[in-house]
Protein backbone atom coordinates (compact mmCIF):
# COMPACT_ATOMS: atom_id res chain seq x y z
CA UNK A 1 0.00 0.00 0.00
CA UNK A 2 1.51 3.26 -1.12
CA UNK A 3 0.80 6.33 0.95
CA UNK A 4 -0.86 8.53 -1.61
CA UNK A 5 -1.43 11.37 0.81
CA UNK A 6 1.97 12.96 0.40
CA UNK A 7 2.13 13.00 -3.41
CA UNK A 8 -1.45 14.23 -3.62
CA UNK A 9 -0.68 16.99 -1.14
CA UNK A 10 2.44 17.88 -3.03
CA UNK A 11 0.49 17.90 -6.27
CA UNK A 12 -2.14 20.20 -4.83
CA UNK A 13 0.50 22.55 -3.47
CA UNK A 14 2.25 22.76 -6.77
CA UNK A 15 -0.82 22.72 -8.98
CA UNK A 16 -2.68 25.49 -7.21
CA UNK A 17 0.43 27.64 -7.23
CA UNK A 18 0.80 27.05 -10.92
CA UNK A 19 -2.86 27.90 -11.61
CA UNK A 20 -2.56 31.06 -9.61
CA UNK A 21 0.56 32.10 -11.43
CA UNK A 22 -1.02 31.27 -14.75
CA UNK A 23 -4.07 33.42 -14.06
CA UNK A 24 -2.01 36.33 -12.89
CA UNK A 25 0.45 36.08 -15.73
CA UNK A 26 -2.27 35.90 -18.36
CA UNK A 27 -3.65 39.22 -17.18
CA UNK A 28 -0.30 40.87 -16.73
CA UNK A 29 0.95 39.42 -19.97
CA UNK A 30 -1.86 40.77 -22.07
CA UNK A 31 -1.67 44.14 -20.37
CA UNK A 32 2.09 44.07 -20.83
CA UNK A 33 1.70 43.26 -24.50
CA UNK A 34 -0.59 46.26 -24.79
CA UNK A 35 1.85 48.54 -23.08
CA UNK A 36 4.82 47.32 -25.08
CA UNK A 37 2.90 47.76 -28.33
CA UNK A 38 2.26 51.37 -27.38
CA UNK A 39 5.65 52.09 -25.82
CA UNK A 40 8.36 49.66 -26.90
CA UNK A 41 10.86 51.14 -24.46
CA UNK A 42 9.02 49.54 -21.53
CA UNK A 43 9.86 46.03 -22.68
CA UNK A 44 12.40 45.36 -19.92
CA UNK A 45 10.04 46.51 -17.22
CA UNK A 46 7.27 44.35 -18.62
CA UNK A 47 9.46 41.24 -18.52
CA UNK A 48 10.06 41.86 -14.85
CA UNK A 49 6.39 42.51 -14.18
CA UNK A 50 5.35 39.32 -15.92
CA UNK A 51 7.89 37.40 -13.86
CA UNK A 52 6.64 38.72 -10.55
CA UNK A 53 3.75 36.29 -9.95
CA UNK A 54 6.12 33.40 -10.57
CA UNK A 55 6.82 33.56 -6.87
CA UNK A 56 3.61 31.63 -6.30
CA UNK A 57 4.46 28.63 -8.41
CA UNK A 58 7.96 28.61 -7.01
CA UNK A 59 6.74 28.63 -3.45
CA UNK A 60 4.27 25.92 -4.45
CA UNK A 61 7.12 23.93 -5.81
CA UNK A 62 9.18 24.45 -2.66
CA UNK A 63 6.32 23.23 -0.52
CA UNK A 64 5.73 20.27 -2.80
CA UNK A 65 9.37 19.33 -2.84
CA UNK A 66 9.63 19.66 0.91
CA UNK A 67 6.59 17.47 1.38
CA UNK A 68 7.96 14.84 -0.90
CA UNK A 69 11.49 14.83 0.42
CA UNK A 70 11.14 15.63 4.08
CA UNK A 71 8.13 13.41 4.81
CA UNK A 72 9.58 10.43 3.09
Amino acid sequence: MVDWGIPIGAGIAFGLGAIGTGLAQSKIGSAGAGTVAERPETFGLMVVLVAIPETMVILGFVVAAMLMIMLK
Binding site: K27, I28, S30, A31, G32, A33, G34, T35, A37, E38, R39, T42
Partner: peptide, 16 residues
Protein backbone atom coordinates in the same frame (compact mmCIF):
# COMPACT_ATOMS: atom_id res chain seq x y z
CA UNK B 1 -14.52 42.16 -22.18
CA UNK B 2 -10.78 41.58 -22.39
CA UNK B 3 -9.97 44.98 -20.99
CA UNK B 4 -6.48 44.19 -19.76
CA UNK B 5 -4.82 44.39 -23.15
CA UNK B 6 -6.96 47.22 -24.45
CA UNK B 7 -6.64 49.33 -21.36
CA UNK B 8 -2.90 48.79 -21.16
CA UNK B 9 -2.64 50.13 -24.68
CA UNK B 10 -4.89 53.03 -23.88
CA UNK B 11 -2.82 53.81 -20.83
CA UNK B 12 0.24 53.68 -23.01
CA UNK B 13 -1.45 56.12 -25.35
CA UNK B 14 -2.32 58.28 -22.41
CA UNK B 15 1.29 58.52 -21.40
CA UNK B 16 1.93 60.03 -24.83
Amino acid sequence: VEYDYVNARIKGMKSC
